[in-house]
Write a protein that binds this DNA or RNA. Structure first.
Lengths: 201, 201, 201, 201
DNA sequence: CATGAATGAGGATTCATTCAT
DNA sequence: TATGAATGAATCCTCATTCAT
């Protein structure tokens, strides 16, 4: 049915797989993994029930593939933009800007990632942590430790600080107003992360 | 089986309900709402399948009752301790101390609360936001705005700041090490919230 | 609760039983036996769940007791009025008049009786046929055969004719208009039974 | 298991549906709707539990589909045969002959129809009345009113008379002897309907 | 590769019934 | 005798998965 005559066989395979991952994202984002309906996913993608099993051996493995995809995309998106700045302070700002932009451009994927991070499924959690390892390392080394070395940041526990930056990021970008837009401004959050609440003496 | 001959009828009712809520917390915390098994809950509580329906009309309403309980307990726990300090800066520290203590003492309840806040079920989300309204108001008024008035904090958007403090709290207290202990130290997080990353000039 | 202080113990027993039978009639009439809820019955009667089992060993036996009561009442009601007429033709008219009057005065009981007669439960059917035996005999002997003997009626199969009269009765009295009133007039039905459709040559 | 390799897909679908409707008829006829077991139906039809839900969204909708089928078949069967006679008196006889023949050939379906007409489920009742509308109109116009016009029948209320004919039909065809055969002879019932009990002067 | 009918384990929910008080 | 908390068998329905076509 969705057969593009000009595409090679392999292209078609990849396209179908991609289409399935996209509709899976929609379904998982709105219903969560356990309540998601595999039938909806293939139907929405324009395929029959069974097709999904030609691409993924199970519902769970579909989710795992989706997690991998989301994690890679999310990480790439942020890493690229953070590294385009040289100054650690600028990198913090870039981190929140890029992070929020990703959420705005990929709301379904972001919702899935966040609900997994804060959810109860240990396998999914492990998997998403793996895919975010590069992002964590970036924050630890290229943001926090780099900032300490540069004399911009306090000599703080870099790993814990990375965790707090991630918490701040994931928490604030999941607070949406009634239109589904992120409630916060990335600059605001970056300022909070950099300067905190207190007035400087 | 759980027939306490010395207890009055009403006491028994309340005890049974409480027992069911506790085992429900365990089940919901480890499996999430959709994957939780109502039979497990009653069986773990020492009752037969049907008993739960003498107390709650449905699985969903059991969850809602649990949310109400968790929200009230969580809010009370934190509000009481925050208000025991007078100084806004101290209150921020108290907020994280009390918050982390609650999570340590009620890990199941905390997991449920966090997974709902960052999850996909809109009804549960709304319900938990309701129960946390008092806590939000506390952060806005008695921490942030009070700190601004006292000249301790910058003149920041108090509502957004409250959201960031909550994000920081929920995010950091849900990062556990391999023993299930919270990875962070509340003082550390409070310091981050108060002072941020940057060195003061 | 429904405790009349002036009544003797036995009276109370009988009254309670009666009250239970009445509310049972309401429940069985509107929901049918299988869908009837035993709890509704006792609650509507003003008693607790368990009380019904002090009077009837099971839901089924409650229905059987109700069938007995309905059958006896129905039979008595019609037999008495039919026998008050001497002429077989008049008796036919009385049969329909009395029968329709019973239905009007006891709509719930009538509904139950009719749904059992045309229903699928063999035990209930047998039981209601037993309680209607006297009524059948009345129609056969004191209406049809008596009419044949008197020279009023054709020499027809009296047993089959009794069945047709009952069919006509039960069928027409269960056709209700939108107000729940019987759609037919007993005189009309009696005339049909006596004279049929055809014009007399 | 019921994989007919020679049949087209659509044929298989229709056959399976038909098979399910037939076994459903057996189950509903012997146990009534509320006590019928959906698993029995599919198992008896040679399918697994879930298969029925590929064809009917619920037990209730299965019954509704069955009602539609029964009503259509029943109506067609009688209408065709009644209209094959021209004389209203003959049509009355045909009505009972055809009606009784239908019951003999479709005992399960007939039982279901009758128990619904005289049962307590309003939705089922409404549905079956809809499917019998054509039959009612036939009796009113093409039997009774036609008979009045021809000068064969008295000038009676045609709608009420139709109701009485239906009552007589449904009531008498549901009286079975111990072998499950209809107790009455259609000619006998037709004679009763045409001439009544009384001797003609 | 795509299909979709069939499967059947799994799970929420109902409710007649019991029995200790 | 009346109560109502507890029971657990029974049953509808869902849906991930299989597999013949």
């Amino acid at each position: 049915m969705p057969r593009l005559p000009t595409a090679t066989k392999e292209d078609t395979l990849i396209e179908t797989r991609q289409r399935l991952l996209e509709t899976a994202a929609a379904e998982f984002a709105s219903n969560g993994f356990a309540s998601a309906n595999i039938n909806h996913i293939s139907t929405l993608a324009g395929y029959a029930k069974g097709t999904i099993y030609n691409y993924f051996p199970s519902k769970r493995s579909l989710m795992l593939a989706l997690i991998d995809e989301i994690g890679a995309k999310h990480t790439n998106f942020i890493v690229t933009q953070v590294m385009s700045a040289d100054d650690p302070v600028q990198r913090v700002r870039q981190f929140f800007h890029a992070g929020f932009a990703f959420v705005e451009q990929n709301p379904l994927q972001a919702r899935i990632a966040i609900s997994i991070v804060y959810g109860h499924d240990e396998e999914f959690k492990q998997r998403i942590y793996q895919t975010y390892e590069r992002l964590f390392n970036l924050i630890i080394q290229d943001i926090v430790e780099s900032g300490i070395t540069h004399g911009d940041f306090k000599t703080i526990d870099s790993s814990a600080t990375a965790g707090m930056l991630m918490s701040l990021y994931l928490g604030s970008c999941s607070q949406l107003d009634s239109d589904g837009k992120i409630f916060f401004d990335p600059g605001q959050v970056a300022a909070f992360a950099l300067e905190g609440l207190q007035l400087r003496g």
